[in-house]
């Protein structure tokens, strides 16, 4: 672990960065009280290794770097999108060790040895994943900015249902959940699509689910 002084400064930096916009509403003069970090070099050089789409990566990262920014700014896999950087939209959804997460809400250095799958790892324009193909067929997107997150989420949702994980709308917790329209809509609700492609996304997922089994 980093030395205690350093992690104290880091935490504070993260805290101020994350709440700055809420704070300035109540701070008419001067914003933020944090002091510049004294040991930025330490913060810059944290090493972390993980696997992305089957490829190993070893990165020197600022400890404050989110997994999302590590992917987008350091590995240049920009398929995962930043819609809010707050865990409010789902555009940054990636699959870590088989589970979908908001990659903006987790620091890259927390992912030593993890297996990460991004939209780029699901398929390519030449060789689409069935979920990607279903989104194209059903026009489950418009601007495309929420789309990688929707697709990663949808792929993970099918696995969650297969694994028998219940949701808020599962009527019976003792029998395996089914991929009903209501289940799917509930489970996908962390992925906002402001273009409003929901009705088509539902059809795309239903088709991909059918073709999968």
């Amino acid at each position: 672990m980093a030395n205690p002084v350093e992690s104290e400064v880091s935490r504070r930096g993260v805290l101020v960065g994350g709440t700055a916009t809420a704070m300035i509403g109540v701070l008419p003069s001067g914003q933020g009280q944090a002091q510049p970090a004294s040991s930025d070099a330490v913060r810059q050089g944290f090493e972390v290794s993980f696997e992305v789409n089957g490829k190993p990566y070893s990165l020197q990262l600022d400890t404050r770097t989110t997994l999302l920014d590590a992917l987008r700014e350091h590995i240049h896999l920009t398929g995962s999108k930043k819609g809010c950087d707050h865990g409010q939209c789902g555009a940054c959804t990636v699959i870590v060790n088989g589970v979908r997460i908001n990659s903006c809400l987790t620091l890259a250095v927390m992912h030593q040895d993890d297996r990460i799958t991004t939209i780029e790892g699901l398929g390519t324009p030449e060789q689409l994943h069935p979920m990607q193909a279903a989104f194209i067929k059903h026009d489950g997107y418009q601007c495309g900015y929420c789309t990688p997150g929707q697709i990663c989420s949808a792929v993970a949702v099918l696995d969650e249902i297969k694994a028998g994980i219940p949701s808020h709308v599962s009527a019976d917790l003792t029998s395996p959940p089914e991929l009903t329209n209501v289940e799917m809509r509930e489970r996908m609700s962390g992925n906002i699509c402001r273009c409003g492609a929901y009705s088509n996304i539902a059809e795309a997922i239903a088709e991909a689910a059918g073709s999968k089994t």
């Binding site: 920009t78 780029e120 699901l122 689409l128 990607q132 989104f135 697709i151």
Partner: peptide, 8 residues
């Protein structure tokens, strides 16, 4: 579509 759905 192929570019948008694959993050390219």
């Amino acid at each position: 579509g192929p570019l948008k759905t694959t993050g390219r």
